[in-house]
Amino acid sequence: MEKDRGHPNRLGIWGWIGGGSWGPDRYLYTLHRITGLGLLFYFVVHIFVTSSRAIGQSAWEESMMRVTGPLFVLGEYLVFVAVAFHAINGVRLVFAELGLGIGKPIEPIYPYRTCLDDQRPWAIGALLLIVALVVVGALDFFVWH
């Protein structure tokens, strides 16, 4: 057992958020996790709320009435933001985790270049795209309606 070997020193969940070198990719990872959990929660609620359409028009309209109001609009906007982040960062991750856009193995010569440097333009591009979507979404949610 690990405990028998000395004083336990795992960072625990704190280590998911910080406790490394505090690089930007760490925060993308943390946000990906938080948005994922949030979306899963919303998704389960969403399945129950929207399944009222199976019963008929009145049941549907009643359940839709129950989720109206400024708080729900704000909540739905947050879901939109979470989807925008999770989807676009997710596309970046699919490529990166399949070894695309992270560079080839190189000779490590100081100052060391890592796959994070190769990944940086893609991460910045993804963030810009997310920001653009979040802005367009805000206009659609709060201005054009």
Binding site: A87, V136, G137, L139, D140
Partner: peptide
């Protein structure tokens, strides 16, 4: 990847309706 396309369509229909 599948969700990206299907949910993308779903979100576009539901939330970018004004656009």
């Amino acid at each position: 990847v599948i969700i990206l396309f299907l949910l993308g369509l779903h979100m576009a229909i539901m939330h970018l309706d004004a656009l």
